[in-house]
Design a protein around this nucleic acid. Structure first.
Lengths: 348, 348
DNA sequence: GCTTATGATGCAAACGTTTTCATCGGATGC
DNA sequence: GCATCCGATGAAAACGTTTGCATCATAAGC
């Protein structure tokens, strides 16, 4: 496989300069160049400067791919989220980015669109690319997948939902407890006929946990199951809106609705406004996520604030620590808070 | 560097199986295994199946790093955006992801936080990781940077702002013309005292183009420069809100405000509502971006709809085509539309 | 002055693929 | 029956680093 002396007339994309040429020009070995860059303390200051001079002269940058192959570390972590467009995921993603970027790691993000099959295939692809670690969303997935990760010795952190098992480290908040916080707020205000709008619980364990909290609260109230109103929908404004539309058309509409995410809550709110249903006088509405926008709505949305950024940052920190040390970290449960604003009021 | 026969008692993270072992077990050469996976048509069907059987038996997956090193393609593209949390960037990012994912490419995203220095360092890092191509936001950057990209023969596409020079392929819409659309709408409604809230024009060429359009429109109206009200702020709701606060405190407040992005527009709207300023009766407000949420606000926000998803998808397509063919694509300018809703009305 | 640490450097074997050639056993054409 | 072509395969040289070990001064310890 001899290359014919690179004499392309037009001058194609110039061959990159390699560490070998740098070494030759600096009259040292490639090992020394490598060390000058990766472990300066192992090289005499004088030598280091000489090497650096040559490097700068040629604008030399190491080939990350070759580095990865030789060192068996890619300095890349994988992140899988269901969607970027919901800004609550954007927040945690950005925090993960910041933490990784600060440590010289890159983030390979995969969007699973709430689809387990797609998630599995994304994970496989990240594995093939030899990411050093993984941050996943939610905890519910085929155990074969977790097996694969373990078999490959790949560090990973679960987020958005605490894991039950201790061998699966997670950084998350308690969705069930958080949703109870929302329900208790409504109940404290005297509501008994409460509706629920949430994500698809079969594809989303966070939505499921929130739904279970709703159901537990309703049972606690002694309200007959037949009187509950539950809508599982996709994460779109319009879905929240149409769900509210149907609730209001019900023979006995609820006096309050728990929307398990702010996106749907905003859609629901817009439906109330369009139909002239007064919020919170005739209808109380509580969201979940406390998106930045929620306090700029009119009326301002009552919601559950979740620590998306903090969670992302912490997850990234723990993952990087795991990669560096080889020791799996402890799970961590972050607190959430109820943010009372203007869309909830006493039951009529 | 001989490894001592791998007899770790605890059984550490098992050494991965390699193509060589697959080849040996299937009684073929590594070349054939490689071809069976990458170019099945070059291998006899019988052989291919035998190889595949061994591969499946061992759950073998190729090492992407080694593939990249040998083939000099990483099947990865880099994307640099100023922020993910503004959902308009999330939209284009998601579209880029989808396109790339569908073609087996991964996306390495860097967040520059509207900082040219950070952007440059991110680009360098992506270069080091040997991405096959790059998607950048905006066109204004040090020419040395473009030089570096060309020197490395790296395909790249500019987005969010059309490029002036034809050697810099872009997929974008015309920010100046789009902003004129907004201004003309206000002018048509009879407004003459118009304020502007926009991003930092020194760090953001999209904001600059929009501001220039505003200024051109104002001059066209014959309004004295001294009477313009301009606020350059960061992309936060609160910044739009405080800007509007100051406008309303002005001795001669504008009757309309052009907010060069919906985030700030929503902040501005909330300030009007908090102060009891009627929109659109006493104050007209037009945004820019037409975020999904804008039509679920009350009143619904008039805005300029930009083709974020389409732009992202198309940019990714063109980039991948460039990578595949070696031929730089033509630039493309996408249309924008004015979406008239409820925050703009006739001047009082 | 002789051993023993110590620090700086070099050698060369990995890392796990891809890809260019060369080879080889038929099938094809005449 | 012979030259030619073709499709399938294999050998082995890249790809551009890292890193364990050996080497060699020089300093330190006694």
């Amino acid at each position: 496989m001899r290359r014919p002396v690179e004499s392309v007339p037009g001058g194609a994309a110039g061959r990159r300069i390699t560490i070998r040429e740098i070494a030759h020009e600096a009259k040292v070995s490639t090992a020394t160049v490598s060390r000058a860059l990766n472990a300066p303390e192992k090289v005499a200051e004088e030598t280091r400067q000489a090497v650096m001079a040559v490097i700068e002269r040629h604008h030399f940058v190491m080939d990350g791919v070759a580095m990865s192959l030789a060192s068996r570390r890619t300095r890349t972590i994988g992140l899988i989220i269901p969607t970027i467009t919901n800004s609550i995921y954007a927040s945690s993603t950005q925090a993960i980015q910041q933490c990784a970027q600060a440590s010289g790691y890159a983030v390979l993000v995969g969007v699973s669109e709430f689809d387990a099959g797609q998630e599995a295939s994304l994970i496989r692809r990240l594995l093939e690319r030899r990411v050093d670690g993984l941050i996943l969303t939610g905890t519910t997935r085929a155990s074969a997948l977790y097996e694969t990760l373990k078999r490959n010795g790949l560090p990973f952190i679960l987020t958005w939902q605490p894991s039950e098992e201790s061998e699966l480290p997670s950084v998350a908040f308690d969705n069930f407890a958080a949703a109870r916080l929302a329900m208790d707020h409504l109940i404290r205000l005297g509501h008994r006929r409460i509706g629920l709008i949430c994500g698809r619980s079969e594809a989303n364990d966070r939505a499921l946990a929130r739904r279970l909290a709703y159901e537990a609260a309703m049972r606690g109230l002694g309200v007959a199951e037949a009187e509950w109103l539950i809508f599982e929908r996709d994460f779109e404004f319009i879905e929240g809106r149409t769900a509210m539309h149907r609730m209001l058309d019900h023979r006995l509409p609820p006096t309050a609705v728990f929307c398990a995410n702010d996106i749907q809550a905003i859609g629901a709110l817009s439906e109330c406004q369009a139909r002239g249903v007064k919020v919170p006088d005739e209808m109380s509405l509580i969201g979940f996520d406390d998106l930045p926008i929620s306090q700029y709505l009119s009326p301002q949305l009552t919601s559950i604030r979740v620590p998306a950024s903090q969670m992302g940052y912490l997850a990234a920190e723990k993952l990087l620590a795991w990669i560096a040390s080889g020791e799996a970290p402890e799970s961590e449960v972050l607190p959430v808070t109820l943010v009372e604003r203007d869309t909830t009021g006493p039951a009529p």
